[in-house]
């Protein structure tokens, strides 16, 4: 059995009005896996992942039976240990649509923050590493990017910076929350290729949230399908796509006729 990197069992999330947003969700991510979570917006996929990383605000009612990060049970950890474990062990690539990069701070002053904070490296080492990673994610002028404010970068560039930033602490896991929305198709492809390279060449495990079935089908080897706060179907991608059991999944698949014809193409 491979190492279990993320584990969440029977998660429930309620909002302040006691509406159930997530109902009994269980998720796992093992070493060397590229796992997708699919569902439309409001299906609870982002909430579930945020709950796994303990990022949800306190006013939401969050309960779960078990939650493990990198093999450690989160309940046993102190606040400090929790922050250290998640901050250094997991990289998070957000949606590109909003200001996850601080708009008033130059890239060079924020990209290395987590690295410096968790490894006690100095600023110079952090900048050097950032430069290497920026090159790795396909940025040709890393120096210029480092000296820029986020607003000076294009959407694709910003998303590459987000990915490089997530890689700064050499995490074993990358969690990507709809990382390709608001990117044009060419950039979208490049960014997905980048994730695929990280997965195949660097052995990083990836938990990938998306509403785009085509992308999920092409890159993920296992998927969860979420609908109205529940996981309605899960399993290996090829099996789920070949033989969906839940009516919602069937409906989803029918909506994208091109999928059928694309089935013969290579799976990620």
């Amino acid at each position: 059995m491979m190492n279990r990197l993320l584990h969440l069992e029977n998660l429930n999330v309620k909002d302040t009005h006691n509406h159930e947003l997530v109902k009994g969700v269980s998720l796992d991510l093992y070493e060397h896996e590229f796992v997708g979570i699919v569902g439309e917006s409001g299906s609870g996929k982002t909430l579930s992942v945020k709950a796994a990383l303990h990022l949800l605000p306190n006013d939401l009612g969050v309960t779960f039976e078990d939650s493990e990060v990198l093999g450690k049970s989160i309940i046993d950890l102190s606040d400090h240990e929790k922050r250290r474990l998640i901050g250094s062990g997991i990289g998070f690539v957000p949606q590109n649509t909003v200001a996850f990069l601080h708009p008033m701070i130059k890239i060079k002053h924020q990209i290395g923050d987590a690295f410096i904070y968790h490894t006690k490296a100095n600023k110079k080492e952090a900048l050097q590493k950032a430069e290497e990673l920026l090159v790795k994610v396909g940025i040709k002028e890393p120096k210029r990017v480092l000296h820029s404010y986020p607003v000076q970068l294009s959407g694709g560039m910003k998303q590459r910076v987000n990915i490089a930033m997530a890689l700064m602490t050499d995490p074993k896991v990358i969690i990507a929350d709809e990382p390709t929305t608001a990117l044009d198709t060419v950039v979208q492809k490049q960014v997905m290729q980048l994730f695929n390279d990280l997965y195949t060449n660097d052995g990083v495990s990836i938990l990938f949230i998306s509403h785009d079935l085509k992308i999920v089908k092409r890159f993920c080897n296992r998927i969860y399908v979420m609908h109205e706060g529940k996981v309605v179907e899960s399993g290996y991608t090829s099996e789920v796509f070949a033989d969906p059991t839940h009516s919602y999944t069937k409906k989803l698949l029918r909506l994208i006729p091109s999928l059928k014809s694309g089935r013969t193409r290579r799976l990620g």
């Binding site: 990383l53 990022l55 998070f92 957000p94 909003v98 200001a99 996850f100």
Partner: peptide, 12 residues
């Protein structure tokens, strides 16, 4: 703002 979410992800 979302950058505050990132600071929690980074464990500050």
């Amino acid at each position: 703002q979302d950058y505050m979410l990132m600071t929690s992800v980074n464990g500050f």
